[in-house]
Design a protein around this nucleic acid. Structure first.
Lengths: 129, 129
DNA sequence: CTTCCAGTTCGAGCCCGCTCGAAGTCAAGC
DNA sequence: GCTTGACTTCGAGCGGGCTCGAACTGGAAG
């Protein structure tokens, strides 16, 4: 029945810890429009809901996979426009997914270069005692 | 008959094109100590040998795999000290290799998040006709 | 000879993604 | 009722990795 203190929301510090970002970054993300304005308590302090935290988590995955902040902002804008942008958001994810796959293929190749180099070093070391 | 002009070396522009960096970056890499001072022609223009180009190529792979410039510099310093640093260089590569593997594992996980999200969008779109 | 172009050096500037300092507010614990 | 400490806003600053403009030089083509 949620009578009163069934809040379960997090302060900026707690949210930051949960998602592995700093409080600075959380406020900055909000300011940059990556996060819709977060609810406040009576004293004006941010309260992060589960949904907010889940959204932040998703953002961290997008960032980690190399999505530029400007694209994340675009995505956030789409999300704020509701269901009618579902298709656009899916397209955005699919395009990003393809870039991540490409990136991984690249890394696999680069890893090969590293391995060959390591091998060359091993052989050279052997040769020199 | 190309008597003497068997140079086979590249100008900064040609080298840049070969390795996929700009001429600005090539000069900057040299200035930053990522590349040992490159040979010059009679007019003071840089001439990149095959070895130079191979070295640059290796640097691009290190960069692409996320090695910071400062580590590349350290590696370049080791390389300039000759054979006695072979072990250190191999260790550096092995450590980097491990980081790249970790990065790839992370990307694989993140890709999963993307896939689930794409799926969720698909289902939501279906639900809304 | 002149024009052109690719090169040279130097220091300044840029974009990105945070990161932080300052000054102030508020609620809780002693 | 005072202190503590986590919060607030604002604008400035930073580190990384280039990127560029300015002023100049030298070889080659017409």
């Amino acid at each position: 029945m949620d009578i009163g203190i069934r809040e379960k929301s997090l302060s900026v510090g707690e949210a930051a810890e949960r998602v592995g970002l700093t409080t600075y970054t959380l406020r900055w993300y909000e300011q940059e429009g990556l996060v819709a304005p977060v609810g406040r308590d009576s004293a004006g302090r941010r309260r992060y809901t589960d949904d907010d935290v889940n959204w932040l988590f998703l953002l961290t995955r997008l960032r980690r996979t190399g999505m530029p902040v400007r694209d994340m902002r675009r995505y956030a804008e789409l999300a704020r426009q509701g269901d009618r942008t579902l298709g656009a958001r899916r397209a955005l994810f699919e395009a990003h997914r393809a870039r991540v796959l490409a990136r991984m293929a690249e890394l696999t190749e680069d890893l090969n270069v590293l391995d060959h180099k390591i091998d060359a070093y091993r052989r050279a070391e052997e040769e020199l005692g």
